[in-house]
Structures are given as structure tokens and as C-alpha cells.
């Protein structure tokens, strides 16, 4: 069963580069993804490829320039205010840096209470908060503490607790473990997997770390300069990638994490920041397989279950 769908989402930003000039950045361009109930959808790509922007669009935190978001069958761009509000509560987000998302002057209890007030919770606040705290592996002593008294991992657990208090169906996890040590990252990853099972959650898991994404995801999408270039089951995409860019990404991961290498030649030369190719495939300048067609014609994301946007894949 489909839980949420983004259809042909696009978002362009005006980026000021000086007082008088600004350039248009196509952060997300014509991206469609559909996520089923209880699924973990991973999103990978280099910095600036538009992962976070797509996350915000899916949550309707930001209105897309075009395209729509359908959550539980409701088209959010046409829904009434109340409906959108209700849907927004059932969708939560957890960011990379809990320091920025937790108010440093507020005790953890108050931070969490706010989440319950927001969703108009009717029952006993203390009881509910304590039970969620236990769910994320924190003791109730945490409630009287301030964020600075907690470690990075504990803060991320608080951020998760706050998200869960709203009883969401869908959570966007935007680089949730990127600021954490590997030992704490492993704790949080396993916690996320447990919570999903227990609470029937659906995740959009954003990360630039391919091995982390491959560990938690059922399906993955690969983004490059605002476009989805590959989409499929996690195992397929990581074991038999079709897009040259996906192959480059996987080949660049240290062998300790991913042993597959798809380029025998010195693939690292391909990593140069390619400038955008205005008319054809965006990966054109970096692609070892590029032909004339790639320069002039943009490939469409095509395929059945395993989709790819490449003329020659």
C-alpha cells in the first residue's frame, strides 16, 4: 500500500551571488517517488544534489514550484488547511544536528511536552513521554536535563522521541547519524530499525553515506544535480547499479564498506565537479561512456522496478 507519493516535483531557488546578481539553482527537477507503508526509502547523492530539498518537498514544509504530494490518498496541494495540518502532524522530520533542532534553554521534558501540545494529545503527558523515552532507550532522568548535558547520541534519541510523540506514519530522516561516532551511529541505526517495526513507521532516509543507506533501506533513489538518476531495490542498486554515476559513487566508497568496484581504470579522475550540461544528460562531462546523444538529449528515468536515466544503461 502506498503511503506517500511525490509526483513530478520541482523546486528552483534564487541564489544571490552578489548584491545585484542571482542565479537560479534547480535544486529538484521533475522528481517522482512513491513510498509504501512500512518501507524505508533511502536517498543518496553528493552534497548539493537536492536530497534535503526533496525531503522538505515531500513533507510539504516547502511548496514545490510544480508537481504534487499525495499523502494517504490526499493531494496536499489541493487539500483544505485543516487536512494539510493533520497530514503535516503525521509526517515528521529528524535532522543531522540535534543541537540546532533542540532548544538549548529548554529542559528535555518541556521540549517533549511541546510536541504533545502541538498534536493536541488528550491523555497523561508524563506517562506518554516516559513511555516514548523508554522506547528510544533513554531513562526518565533525562527529562530534567538540558540538551548540553546530553551526548550527541542521546540528543538524537530525544529528537527521535519528539518526532514519535506526534504519532507519525512517515518520518524523513535527514542525515540522522552523520554527526555521530560509529559506535553511536550503530546504536541509532538499530534503534531506527526497531522503532519502524514496533510503530509501523515509514522512513525517507537521506544520507550521503552509502553503506549506512544500504544497511537500513528497502529501496533507494540516487540523485544527481536535482534529478533522480536511478531508483530500485536496495540490493539491486548497490550490487548491479545501472547508472554510471551510481557506479562511480559505489566505486568511491572505501573497500572496507563496499567491495564492489565498477571501474578498473582510475575512476577517481571522473570525480571532477562537472559543470552542468545544459541540454543533455547532466552527468555528460564526467561520464566515461558518454556519446554525442548524451550531449544533446536528456535521458528520461525509465524502467520497470529498477529505473535508470541513461541512454546506454
Amino acid at each position: 500500500m502506498e503511503l506517500i507519493k511525490g509526483e513530478n516535483l520541482s523546486k528552483t531557488y534564487n541564489l544571490k551571488i552578489s548584491l545585484t546578481t542571482s542565479i537560479k539553482v534547480k535544486a529538484v527537477e521533475n522528481v517522482s517517488i512513491s513510498i509504501s507503508e512500512k518501507e524505508v526509502f533511502g536517498l543518496v547523492g553528493e552534497s548539493g544534489s537536492g536530497k534535503s530539498t526533496l525531503g522538505r518537498l515531500m513533507l510539504f514544509m516547502e511548496k514545490p514550484d510544480s508537481g504534487k504530494v499525495i499523502f494517504k490518498g490526499v493531494d496536499l496541494s489541493r487539500a483544505k488547511k485543516d487536512e494539510v495540518k493533520d497530514a503535516r502532524r503525521r509526517m515528521q522530520i529528524v535532522f543531522q544536528n540535534p543541537d540546532l533542532s533542540l532548544d538549548p534553554r529548554m529542559k528535555i521534558y518541556n521540549t517533549l511536552k511541546e510536541a504533545l501540545v502541538c498534536c493536541k494529545y488528550k491523555g497523561d503527558f508524563v506517562e506518554r513521554i516516559k513511555s516514548v523515552l523508554e522506547e528510544v532507550g533513554l531513562s526518565s532522568e533525562t527529562l530534567n536535563m538540558f540538551p548540553h548535558q546530553l551526548s550527541g547520541g542521546m540528543k538524537q534519541r530525544v529528537a527521535l522521541a519528539r518526532a514519535i510523540l506526534a504519532e507519525p506514519d512517515f518520518i524523513v530522516l535527514d542525515e540522522p547519524t552523520s554527526a555521530l561516532d560509529v559506535s553511536v551511529q550503530a546504536q541509532i541505526l538499530n534503534l531506527l530499525i526497531d522503532l519502524r517495526k514496533k510503530l509501523n513507521l515509514t522512513y525517507l532516509f537521506i544520507s550521503h553515506n552509502l553503506s549506512v543507506v544500504s544497511y537500513v533501506s528497502d529501496r533507494v533513489g540516487v540523485m544527481y544535480l536535482g534529478k533522480l538518476v536511478e531508483l530500485g531495490n536496495c540490493d539491486e542498486v548497490f550490487n548491479e547499479p545501472l547508472h554510471p554515476y551510481t557506479k562511480l559513487l559505489i566505486s568511491s566508497v572505501p573497500a572496507l564498506y563496499m567491495t564492489k568496484k565498477f571501474f578498473t581504470q582510475n575512476h577517481t579522475a571522473l570525480a571532477e565537479n562537472g559543470e552542468e550540461n545544459p541540454s543533455g544528460c547532466r552527468f555528460f562531462k564526467r561520464c566515461p561512456y558518454a556519446k554525442e546523444l548524451c550531449r544533446v538529449k536528456e535521458p528520461e528515468l525509465d524502467g520497470d522496478k529498477h529505473k535508470v536515466a541513461c541512454h546506454f544503461a
Binding site: 559506535s183 550503530a186 553503506s211 544500504s214 544497511y215 540490493d235 572496507l256 564498506y257 563496499m258
Partner: peptide, 8 residues
Amino acid sequence: SCIPRSLK
């Protein structure tokens, strides 16, 4: 054993 390596 904390390192997420190949799949699952």
C-alpha cells in the same frame, strides 16, 4: 562490529 558493511 559497529561498521555497516555490505548489505544487511
